[in-house]
């Protein structure tokens, strides 16, 4: 799908797409919820990138005098039991959530797509073997599997990403496989064979692009769930090690002890997680529609 084709579509739809700004406005009108999602994600990504410039305090500096200081004054969101600035920790925490969310979803989707496509397109014993392996992976709940992986690999950012991505593989592989099975029988795939196309080209050019819609829905749903899984892992001491700020650990470590006495310790990380998960879902829905040529015509 090149830019040229895209623009002709827009022009025919009556949009004035002579400038990038006008094009953005057109899409925002067309998909208002998607635009909200995009804004949320933009804020999220920008704060992760520019964390150093928008935080007045270091997220790691402790200050006993400020322990459990309520929101207000210099510390907008208050501070935690060690006197660390919560606002700064949430902004820096966006980096970790972004890395874990996008990293593990991308990794899981990549391997899931490769396995699902091979399994569905080649069929036969390849299909049989992959499906049994996937059965084994799927027999364990996502969190338990991530837990085992994280415990085996040890706590670090890379290992957290890896251990969250692996339980995602079977879900993606199953969806892609079932789609591939249906698409394989369609006449345009037969036409591709008649033309003399290689099996690889058929799989990549004709089958894969038609499985994009469910993949985006699954991917965006998983982005949120990956952030939540990281929270659970960190709470159990297997995710991101202290003292680095992780929204999940900020939320869960303080929930039991301080929710009554210092609720801001729980409220702000909770809001951050909810808003980002909400944003990914809105954006995902809109992306699925925008990427489907049938929805645009």
């Amino acid at each position: 799908m090149t830019a040229v084709e895209f623009e002709s579509e827009l022009t025919r739809a009556g949009a004035r797409t002579d400038t990038l700004w006008r094009k953005t406005v057109f899409f925002a009108r067309q998909y208002p919820l998607g635009a909200i999602g995009a804004v949320i994600m933009a804020v999220f990504v920008l704060s992760a990138v520019f964390a150093d410039f928008i935080t007045p305090w270091s997220p790691l500096t402790t200050n006993a005098a400020l322990s459990l200081a309520p929101p207000g004054g210099a510390h907008w969101f208050g501070s935690d039991y060690m006197g660390r600035d919560i606002y700064s920790r949430i902004v820096y925490g966006a980096r970790i959530s972004l890395a874990v969310g996008i990293g593990s979803t991308a990794l899981g989707c990549f391997f899931g797509v490769v396995l699902g496509l091979l399994s569905g397109y080649l069929g036969g014993w390849v299909d049989l073997v992959t499906q049994r392996l996937i059965d084994i992976l799927q027999a364990l709940p996502l969190l338990v599997l991530a837990l085992v992986m994280a415990a085996a690999l040890g706590p670090s950012l890379q290992n957290t990403i890896l251990s969250i991505s692996i339980p995602l593989i079977p879900y993606v592989a199953r969806v892609i496989r079932s789609n591939t099975l249906a698409l394989r029988e369609l006449a345009f795939v037969e036409a591709a064979h008649a033309i003399g196309m290689s099996e690889f080209r058929i799989a990549v050019r004709h089958i894969l692009p038609n499985t994009i819609a469910p993949l985006i829905v699954l991917g965006t749903a998983q982005l949120g769930s990956a952030i939540l899984t990281e929270a659970s892992l960190s709470f159990l001491g297997l995710g991101i090690p202290e003292p680095y700020p992780s929204w999940g650990r900020m939320l869960s470590a303080s929930a039991a002890e301080y929710v009554r006495t210092a609720p801001w310790l729980v409220i702000f990380p909770g809001i951050a997680i909810s808003v980002v998960v909400f944003g990914t879902n809105l954006l995902g829905d809109a992306l699925r529609d925008i990427l489907d040529p049938r929805q645009r015509g």
Partner: peptide, 28 residues
């Protein structure tokens, strides 16, 4: 070459008409 019965499933919905007709030229 072949022309199929169902005009709806015989063309890849994610490719432009031009790309569909051009593809055999590229493949060969």
């Amino acid at each position: 070459q072949m022309v199929f019965q169902d005009p709806f499933s015989s063309l890849n919905p994610r490719m432009t008409a031009g790309a569909i007709v051009r593809e055999p030229l590229e493949v060969h």
